[in-house]
Design a protein around this nucleic acid. Sequence first.
DNA 1: ACCTGAACACCGTTCAAGT
DNA 2: ACCTGAACACCGTTCAAGT
Lengths: 187, 187
Amino acid sequence: MSTSQQNAPYHHGDLRNALLEAALVILEREGEAGLGLRDLARAVGVSPAAPYRHFDSRAALLEALAVTGFQRFTRAMEDVAEANPPDMLPVMGKTYVLFALRNAALFRLMFSPQLKRDNRPGLRMAADAAFATLRHVSGGDTSNGRVTALAAWARVHGLAVLLLDGQIALQAGEDIEALISEIIDRH
Amino acid sequence: MSTSQQNAPYHHGDLRNALLEAALVILEREGEAGLGLRDLARAVGVSPAAPYRHFDSRAALLEALAVTGFQRFTRAMEDVAEANPPDMLPVMGKTYVLFALRNAALFRLMFSPQLKRDNRPGLRMAADAAFATLRHVSGGDTSNGRVTALAAWARVHGLAVLLLDGQIALQAGEDIEALISEIIDRH
DNA sequence: ACCTGAACACCGTTCAAGT
DNA sequence: ACCTGAACACCGTTCAAGT
């Protein structure tokens, strides 16, 4: 009882962030389709119309979530780049795949075709910033290494989504992180 | 005028197939989110409740579409396997990616997390049959080549979805099929 | 400036009734 | 056996009105 509407606080104070936080929880638990604006408002203890003071539409809310997803992703990539490990590429690849597995619904939202349909510039910018990190470290700037860099990116990204979709069958007792390492280290 | 409801044909005759065909068209034009059961019924010239004689729910309709997607995909893969080209793997990879690009919405539906959420056995079976073709030709059966086969699959699948999402920027005047070949042929 | 209440047009789905 | 008409509970969204 009295979990989320402590004495009906008229002006919520920080409704925007409360909505985003609750949305992330619902997103990972129910998936994108299960994240309704009315459910979200209910979860935060506010009227169905209240979210519209902070987001133009449901799509705008989803975009905001996807943008924070790209920001977290960028952060994770920069962290391993700064740690400056001896062979950078494989450990970045593992970080990429593990980020996807640990933030499944968020990762999928980052690449959602529905958001892409109405060209959202904020999303595009966040995505570009995220992938710039990759290009920088993988030598994708030089026109020579471009194809090699794209091939490596495709392998890592493909591994992430195939694992996410449960398309890659694990063998009995097989450790998923070990498999990821094996696949990424195979050149 | 008189495009789709020729004199109100009481018993449509083959409503199930008419629904599936119209759904494929709407799907590629509007995306999955734009494919409503009521719109679909309207497009075929039938009442909003009529589709329920042939599909239990909207999800069941989407599943049927995804299954035919996997069947078409399997067909495309078997066709190139039977042509028996000298170096089979690269041309299968190109077929894979081009199938995704030419059936964008359908391909995405085949891997839709929403359908996966309610474990649909028909979908799982169709997907397994499709990927069995790949395993057979890529030597993924032998425990030795498994990791190599998974790495190749991941690269091809990743390339498909990155291109689909417009994440791979084409250079000025660059031919997309040429780029696909370059990336796939890079070992 | 931020939120509520009530309304609007729309869904997916159900069910009695028609042919 | 297959389809219609009308209804139900639910959305996302809008807008006047409240604080």
